[in-house]
């Protein structure tokens, strides 16, 4: 049994049709899992279902063996699940440090130590700690977004297309940071469009098509699977 798992999840928005059906995703601590697939395959939806942003029609979500299927997003955050949305993932009007403080909103203990750890992970944030985030560059903002999400010391980190709209250089840097986060024994799930690059740093990957698991395997396996290559990697 994996640390964090969504089993046979079926869900959709409101009374609309099911976006994902019987979709299963799991991840262990210290592991990066990428969710891939064409547009509209339900990648983000699967992630949001695991976070509780939409209700499951069937299936279940477990963390560390505990059923959290009925938990509200708020309660799931308390269980140590952190989420970085694709857009608007920082507080642009607040300073870097305030962003981190808000990230630690649920923590009751002294957060200065955690903030120092984040500064160690992302040194640039320490340098810019009193700057308003709206004035930072795209890559720096993504680091703030990651830093904010890490403030609760999550056991699971979910990233929704972290590299959307950033330059290739920033993308490499960002993946580098994500690998550093992984080393702190966090389970990471990310939805990605840049499938090749994502798989190159992932331990495993899932390919979703029309809301169902189509392929899964280690990063290498997927990269070498001729069918996956043909249909999703464009080679």
């Amino acid at each position: 049994m994996a640390f964090f798992e969504g089993n046979k999840m079926t869900a959709g928005y409101g009374d609309g049709p099911d976006i994902i059906s019987s979709c299963s995703i799991n991840v262990d601590r210290g592991e990066i899992v990428a969710i891939l697939g064409p547009n509209g395959a339900g990648k983000s939806t699967a992630m949001k279902a695991m976070l509780g942003l939409l209700n499951l029609k069937s299936g279940s979500v477990y963390i560390d063996g505990k059923d959290i299927s009925k938990f509200s997003p708020h309660d799931r955050i308390k269980q140590g699940i952190s989420f970085v949305p694709q857009t608007r993932n920082v507080f642009a009007e607040l300073t870097v440090r305030e962003n981190l403080e808000v990230g630690a909103f649920l923590r009751e203990d002294d957060i200065n130590k955690v903030i120092e750890e984040i500064y160690e992970l992302f040194p640039i944030l320490k340098e810019k700690k009193s700057q308003v985030v709206g004035q930072l560059s795209g890559g720096q903002r993504q680091q703030v977004a990651l830093g904010r999400a890490l403030m609760i010391k999550p056991s699971v980190l979910m990233l929704d297309e972290p590299t959307a709209g950033v330059s290739p250089i920033v993308m490499d840097e960002l993946f580098h940071h994500i690998l550093k986060v992984k080393e702190t024994n966090v389970a990471i799930i990310m939805v990605e469009q840049n499938a090749k690059q994502a798989l190159s740093i992932s331990d495993r990957g899932y390919v979703l098509v029309t809301g169902e698991n189509k392929f899964e395997g280690s990063g290498k396996e997927l990269l070498n699977d001729p069918e996956v290559r043909r249909s999703f990697l464009g080679a």
């Binding site: 955050i77 608007r88 609760i152």
Partner: peptide
């Protein structure tokens, strides 16, 4: 204060404030 910062955060980006556990 922590509450004050959370209010500014809520004013700035409601969805992210909710994801950060702000009530």
């Amino acid at each position: 204060t922590k509450t004050g910062t959370s209010m500014r955060a809520y004013s700035d980006n409601e969805d992210l404030a909710l994801l950060s556990g702000i009530d």
